[in-house]
Design a protein around this nucleic acid. Structure first.
Lengths: 75, 75
DNA sequence: ACAAAATGTTAAGTATTTTATACATCAAAA
DNA sequence: TTTTGATGTATAAAATACTTAACATTTTGT
C-alpha cells in the first residue's frame, strides 16, 4: 500500500522553549533567510540535510528529535 | 575562527554490514539512482533531509548515526 | 586470464531548495 | 489609534540536488 510518508517538525515549539526565539533569529544563527525557516517550519519542503543539522544543533537536539518522517496518520 | 563543518557518513560501512548491499540495491530501496547514492556516499553534496531519512531507515538507524556534521579535524 | 558486476566519473538536463523583494495580516506596545 | 515587530504569502531568479546515459576503472568470480 506504499504508505505515504511526510516530514513534520517541532521547530516552532523548540523556538518558543528557546527564549521565544524568532524565525529571523533562528535564520540568522544558521545562516539562511527568514523565508527558508518559514518554509521549513511550515513543511513546504524538505530542507537540505545540512540545514537540518544546523537547526538541530541550535536546539542541542539530534535531528530525529527535530524532524519526524512518519506516515501521515501517525499520532 | 568560524570552524568549518563538513558532512560525513557511514553509508559504505553500513552497506557492507547489511549483507554487502550494493549501491544499486540501496538506490532502488530508497527510490533514487545509483549516481545519487554514489555522490552522497562520497560526500559530493548534502542530500535532502528526506533522502537522508530514507537511507537511515533502511539501516534502522537514527540519522545522526548515519551522517555526522562535524568540524573537519574531529576524530 | 577473462567475464561480469560493482564502483567511479562526466556532462547535460530536470526538479527542488534557497534567496531576494515586496506586501499583507496580526498582536503587542507606545 | 498608530507604530512596530513577528509571521504569512507570492513570485522570480539563483543555487543545488537529482536523473539519465554513457563510458572508464576496479573488484570479484570462474
Amino acid at each position: 500500500m506504499a504508505e505515504t510518508l511526510t516530514l513534520k517538525n517541532n521547530i516552532r515549539t523548540l523556538r518558543f522553549f528557546s527564549n521565544e526565539m524568532t524565525q529571523q533569529e533562528l535564520a540568522s544563527k544558521i545562516g539562511v533567510t527568514r523565508q527558508t525557516v518559514m518554509a521549513i517550519e511550515k513543511g513546504k519542503y524538505s530542507p537540505s540535510l545540512e540545514v537540518a543539522f544546523k537547526i538541530a544543533r541550535i536546539f542541542n537536539k539530534p535531528i530525529d528529535d527535530v524532524f519526524q518522517y512518519t506516515s501521515l496518520d501517525e499520532k
